[in-house]
Amino acid sequence: MATAIEKHDIHSQRTTIRRHGIVTRVTHWTWAVALFFLLLSGLQIFNAHPSLYIGEQSGFAFDNSVLSIRAVRGADGNAEGLTTLFGRRIDTTGLLGVSGPEDSRVYEAFPGWLTVPSYHDLATGRVVHFFFAWLFAATFISWFAASLINGHLRRDILPSFSDIRGLPGSFLEHLRFRFHHCRSYTGLQKISYAIVLLVLFPLMILTGLTMSPGMNAAMPWLTEIFGGRQAARTIHFVVMLLLVGFFAIHIFMVFAAGPINEMRSMVTGRYRIDGEAAEGGSER
């Protein structure tokens, strides 16, 4: 398929191929929109009870807290943002717990610019979250089915033995900002995408379902595998942090590897790869 539309530019030894199929492009942008809203509505929901625990329940008469973000009254009488992580107390005034200008403080775990709506509204946060959760999960199932059938999963996502063997080299190349624009993903890309698509995405959906009392009745094994409903809520939060971390690196890599070529490949599908002579490993 790729050869049919290849366009060789003799002068610059460059070749344009069709890199991303329509399913990859549509699911990519649907996920991008859905995850944007899921993140901001999720932080709104977190703000309603800004504490995370291990186990089934939340300890009020005992301590099973992992993380809490609160506003407390400081020694000088002013409100301070106090984040407690595994019992370690961290002053996060201005960012978490207490934020906003001195004369109009906001006493929320995550500040308004990180939530939808920007003001405290759990009901609307839940409406937004569950709408995009359906969109996210439906997109995931469509992508998974299509990628199984058309071979995308086996060909482009699942790392081969040689990909894993070449991982240290691939990692070093990325650190040196030497990017090879090839037909297929590098080993590091494959492993990153495999972790996000096949581990983090399903984990997000399953821990989300585990928090639903209705789904607990339908699938009691859900709370068993995650160690309780509150543990699932904690894992949901940690996976969110991992996805935000992936997003940051992902965007950085797009810019480092050539934003126009990369963006074009995810919009139109067309991608310029290095000429055959350059495939050996020299810089582009």
Partner: peptide, 27 residues
């Protein structure tokens, strides 16, 4: 710019909010 800009769409009775709230019927 997104967060404040989205508030209007999400206020009570706004069309976007009503459409998204229909997901509860599906759930």
């Amino acid at each position: 710019a997104g967060c404040d800009a989205l508030d209007g769409m999400l206020s009570s009775g706004a069309t976007a909010r009503d459409v998204m709230a229909k997901a509860n019927g599906l759930t």
